[in-house]
């Protein structure tokens, strides 16, 4: 953030951006090709944490809408309404669609027909 009382630097004193890589030894490489399955499982577990956090934010909003103080006890005591449950479910499904898009595009492309061959439109 700018400090209002700091005088502007002279052109010959312009600060270089910090270097963001380390010189010296190459980064160690530990993961092996088969490890990517485990990384994927971690990713799915992390999605669960993101989803739980989002639900907690939504409970904050629900408690506030009811006019209550947002305390840990109020969050634990909040009873989810069927409507709010359905909205959360739709949000979770939408999140999965976004995260899994790179997977599902293979399925969707398999049924995609009717486009002109690329060679016809590029030449």
């Amino acid at each position: 953030m700018d400090q209002p009382d700091t005088p502007p630097r002279q052109p010959d004193q312009v600060r270089q951006p910090r270097r963001r890589f380390a010189r010296g030894q190459a980064r160690p490489a530990y993961l092996e090709p088969g490890d990517v399955d485990r990384v994927m499982i971690m990713l799915v577990a992390l999605m669960s944490e993101v989803s739980a956090l989002r639900d907690r934010v939504d409970t904050h909003e629900a408690v506030a809408e009811l006019g209550g103080a947002i305390t840990s006890a109020a969050i634990e005591a909040y009873e989810l309404t069927p409507l709010r449950h359905a909205v959360r479910e739709a949000n979770r499904e939408a999140m999965l669609s976004r995260v899994f898009r790179v997977i599902t595009e293979g399925r969707d492309a398999a049924t995609d027909t009717g486009a002109a061959p690329l060679a016809e439109v590029v030449s």
Binding site: S48, A52, D55, R56, R88
Partner: peptide, 16 residues
Amino acid sequence: HDEAARYAFVSTLRKA
């Protein structure tokens, strides 16, 4: 609260 939220996620994931 958070356990229920994680359950809900696994259910949605299983459904997907």
